[in-house]
């Protein structure tokens, strides 16, 4: 494991912690897209089906369990916790996320490494992760103002994707047989979706002002 991969995983973990902290501290999920969180829960459940068949390292297994558990916990908070549930604004969170699920699954049926149950669900999770942030980005754009913790959550998620690209470049240069088109191409698409957000994030950071996205 190289430093970029480790840093990527850590920022991913950090983003989840920031989100949990926001929900726990404010007992509110305002500005958070429940649909994006549900998509991430599906992503992790579909990708880590190999928890039961393949063992890579204690680190991998541990992180997989953390990602599954934390994503389910976040969805549970937004759907079930009485106080958090009340702060959820479903009128802002209108993205038709089931279309993303359907399109990703269809793509996985055609584009995969092997036609096996695990491989199709793995490819599906890669495609779905690439677009899972869309409901969140649309929600932020619609609401205009972004509170600090939600902004940092999206920032760390984007940083995680950027670091994974550096990780792939590093691996491509150092590992003779490193080719994984599905993950890399989807990863680049996924990172590109953050470009707009990052642009406004850095402007607000430079001007030391509150993050605002144009309508």
């Amino acid at each position: 494991m190289n430093i970029f991969r480790l840093a990527g995983d850590m920022t991913h973990l950090l983003s989840i912690l920031v989100l949990l902290l926001k929900i726990y501290a404010t007992k509110s999920c305002s500005g958070v897209s429940r649909k994006t969180q549900e998509l991430y829960a599906i992503v992790f459940l579909a990708r880590y089906l190999d928890l039961f068949t393949d063992f890579i390292s204690v680190y991998n297994t541990f992180m997989k369990i953390v990602f599954i558990a934390s994503s389910l916990a976040i969805v549970w908070c937004i759907r079930v916790h009485p106080m958090v549930k009340r702060s959820y604004d479903k009128d802002l969170d209108t993205f038709r996320h089931y279309l993303l699920v359907a399109a990703s699954f269809l793509l996985a049926l055609f584009l995969h490494e092997k036609f096996t149950f695990l491989e199709i669900f793995w490819a599906f999770s890669i495609y779905l992760e690439a677009v899972a942030i869309l409901p969140q980005l649309v929600l932020l754009q619609r609401s205009g103002n972004v509170d600090n913790l939600t902004g940092q959550y999206v920032f760390f998620l984007g940083a995680y994707r950027g670091l994974y690209i550096l990780n792939w470049i590093y691996r491509y240069l150092t590992e003779p047989r490193f080719t994984r088109w599905i993950a890399c191409v989807s990863g680049v698409v996924q990172t590109a979706l953050y470009a707009d957000f990052f642009y406004y994030y850095f402007i607000s950071w430079k001007n030391n002002s509150k993050l605002k996205l144009p309508a």
Binding site: R5, D9, H12, D50, D54, I56, N60, M63, K64, F67, E113, W122, Y164, N167, R180, A183
Partner: peptide
């Protein structure tokens, strides 16, 4: 081995 290597990322 190849399959394990392939899915070594999270």
């Amino acid at each position: 081995l190849e399959k394990i290597l392939y899915h070594d990322e999270l």
